[in-house]
Amino acid sequence: MKAAPFAYAKPGSLREAFALLERHGDRAKLLAGGQSLIAALNMRLATPSILVDLTAIPGIDGIQLRGDHLAIGALVRHREIERSELVAKHAPLLSQAAPHIAHVAIRNAGTIGGSLAMADPAAEWPACCVALEAHIVAASPKGERRIPATKFFKSLFTTALAPREIITAVEVPVAGANTRSAFLELVRRRGDYAIVGLAAHTQLERGALTRLRLVYLGVGDAPVSAAGAMEKLEGKRATPEAIAAAQAALEQDLSPAADLTHSAATKLHLARVLLGRALAALVT
């Protein structure tokens, strides 16, 4: 298990990074925390000719409150998010999700930008960003653009990023007084990729669920918003009847593929269970 030969560059600015991408094109891979990429290199699932290490680029790390949103730099490690008081206050869904990401050693190294760019459909951050209606900030020689997370994840390991674009930050709307969130996932061992996971987010208005977002992970090629279930519940209280109706709607919302040990039917069943639990958590 040795990686195929590759060159390595550590640019000191975005401009240098763009130049390297320009020169090497598809043969270059961006390296941030390396928690997925290094394993892929060692198993020769990825054989880039050059790694462009982003970790010396200034200005793309740190967590800052900027008006109505929280800006989380692409190089921010999972563990920083987990321990951030700013995040706990303004984007509690991320605080709830962070402990589910692998193990501490991995969270110490892995970055949110890397996770979003990787777009693993079983990963936590993509689903959270969709649920929060966050924006992914991407930079290229042409400038910067903000891509809604809801339009960012295209399919398996595929995003809306253009070939020479680099994620620099993610912007998350700050939570209000009525914001409620819940993050649940089912794993056979703590830290594994979820069999099924659910990022739930709502504004609770006098007991009613409004602007409800229910985004699943592990049930498709990308984070899956449960549109039917959200519609059944929007503006309603989480009564047993409403929950049951939403759970029934998941049959249309989700079409999970079987994994090694769970059939599609089981995944759908588990998604329903999580929905019930998430709603209970949102309203208590």
């Binding site: 198993m43 056979r188 061992r189 703590r190 830290g191 594994d192 990729y193 090694l260 040990t261």
Partner: peptide, 27 residues
């Protein structure tokens, strides 16, 4: 947790520590 899963064609389906689950102390 542990099982070496093979396809009907005799391909090992979970030949890495990501897919072959060994118990960990926390569990």
């Amino acid at each position: 947790l542990e099982e070496c899963l093979y396809s009907p064609e005799g391909q090992l389906l979970n030949g890495s520590l990501a897919d072959y689950l060994v118990p960990m102390s926390g569990d």
